[in-house]
């Protein structure tokens, strides 16, 4: 996974609320067996409009997406994160996310920044004409107009993003603890193993 620290560039002033994963990547794009190339299907229904933001001269390839409340709700498909990543997005900024989406984003090297609606409104305004700066190390979103918004992030997620860490390798360090848990489970509740 590519480490992520500072991201600066144009931010797509999208702003829509309750954007579900069906909008981010429609179901027919799920019929793949690989992760690559999914950006072509990102926001397909919106991009059917020739004047859409995503393909406009200003925002094509922009690394930041500004969205509304409850971004990534709906189906748990991780394809949504792959699609955003393949589209070139490294940071999403929104007031809230579905739990599953924010987890999937981090696992795929995308930073989900949570900021209050007032900050989102201001960033939407700036983003129409000017770039936005995201600094994960210092947990800030800034603009060239003295705006400075701090955001919270789980320290573990932050470390994973900063170092581009693969979670499975991390968990494998706990192999002995998992083995001990399994032993104890077999002793305490042997019926937990599927009977057949």
């Amino acid at each position: 996974m590519t480490p992520l620290d500072k991201v600066e560039g144009r931010a797509i002033p999208f702003g829509l609320k309750n954007v579900d994963t069906d909008v981010i990547i429609p179901a027919h794009w799920l019929k793949t067996t690989t992760r690559e190339g999914m950006g072509r299907g990102a926001f397909e229904s919106l991009r059917a409009d020739p004047d859409n933001l995503f393909d406009s001269a200003d925002f094509k390839g922009a690394p930041i997406l500004i969205a509304g409340d409850n971004f990534g709700c709906g189906s748990s498909r991780e394809h949504a994160a792959w699609a955003l990543g393949d589209l070139g997005i490294r940071v999403v900024i929104a007031p809230s996310y579905s739990d599953i989406f924010s987890g999937n984003a981090v696992k795929n090297g995308i930073l989900p920044v949570v900021l209050p609606q007032a900050a989102i409104d201001r960033l939407m305004e700036v983003a129409t004409t000017d770039p936005v700066f995201v600094d994960l190390e210092h947990q800030t979103v800034t603009t060239q107009f003295q705006d400075r918004f701090s955001f919270e992030i789980d320290p573990f997620r932050k470390m994973c993003l900063l170092e581009g860490l693969d979670e499975i390798s991390l968990t494998e360090k706990s192999d002995a603890a998992i083995g001990a848990y399994e032993k104890k489970l077999d002793a305490d509740r042997p019926w937990m193993r599927p009977a057949a």
């Binding site: 748990s76 991780e78 994160a81 999937n104 696992k107 979670e167 499975i168 968990t171 998992i178 399994e182």
Partner: peptide, 21 residues
Amino acid sequence: GIGTSEVEHVLATQTLLLQPS
């Protein structure tokens, strides 16, 4: 529900890293 990275994580380790809800 989990995403594909987590599917891989569970297949490999039978665990998930989670925050309590």
